[in-house]
Computed example of a mutant assay.
Amino acid sequence: MNEPVFHAGTVAVIGRPNVGKSSLINALVGSKVSITSDRPQTTRHRMLGIASFPAGQIVLVDTPGIHGPQNRAMSRVLNRAARGALEGVDAAMLVIEAGRWDEEDTLAFDALRNAGVPVVLVVNKVDRTKNKEELLPFLQKAAEGRDFAAVLPVSATKRAGLEGLVKELLSLLPEQPALYPDDEITDRSMRFLAAEFVREQLMRQLGDELPYAAAVEIERFELDGEMFRIGAVIWVERDGQKAIVIGKGGARLREIGTKARLQMESSFGHKVFLETWVRVREGWSNDEAALRTLGYGQ
Rank of each mutant, 00 (worst) to 15 (best):
F109T: 01
I58R: 08
S31R: 14
M47H: 12
A92Y: 09
A82I: 06
H45P: 01
R46E: 03
V61L: 01
D90T: 06
G56Y: 03
D62V: 00
I66A: 07
L60I: 06
P69Y: 10
W101C: 04
S22T: 06
R76A: 11
A73T: 01
T43A: 12
E104Q: 15
V19D: 03
V95W: 01
E103N: 14
L48E: 13
S23N: 13
L94N: 07
V95E: 00
V77I: 13
A27W: 01
R46Q: 12
A81G: 09
S52C: 09
S37G: 14
N79M: 14
N71Y: 15
S23G: 14
S37M: 13
S22V: 02
K32H: 04
D102W: 03
A98N: 10
A111P: 05
S37W: 11
T43V: 14
G30L: 13
G84K: 08
L24P: 04
I66N: 05
G30I: 13
A91M: 08
D38K: 15
F53Q: 08
G30P: 12
G30M: 14
T42N: 13
G20N: 11
E103Y: 11
T43R: 10
G68Y: 01
A82K: 00
A91Y: 08
A111E: 06
T36D: 00
D38C: 04
N26F: 00
S22M: 05
E104P: 04
V89Q: 02
L86C: 02
G88E: 05
D105I: 07
I66G: 06
V33H: 03
A55Y: 06
F109I: 01
D110T: 15
P69C: 09
V33R: 03
G68D: 08
L24A: 07
Q41M: 04
I35R: 00
Q70S: 15
I96A: 12
V33C: 06
G20D: 12
R72P: 00
A27V: 04
T43L: 13
T106I: 14
I50D: 03
Q57S: 02
V61S: 00
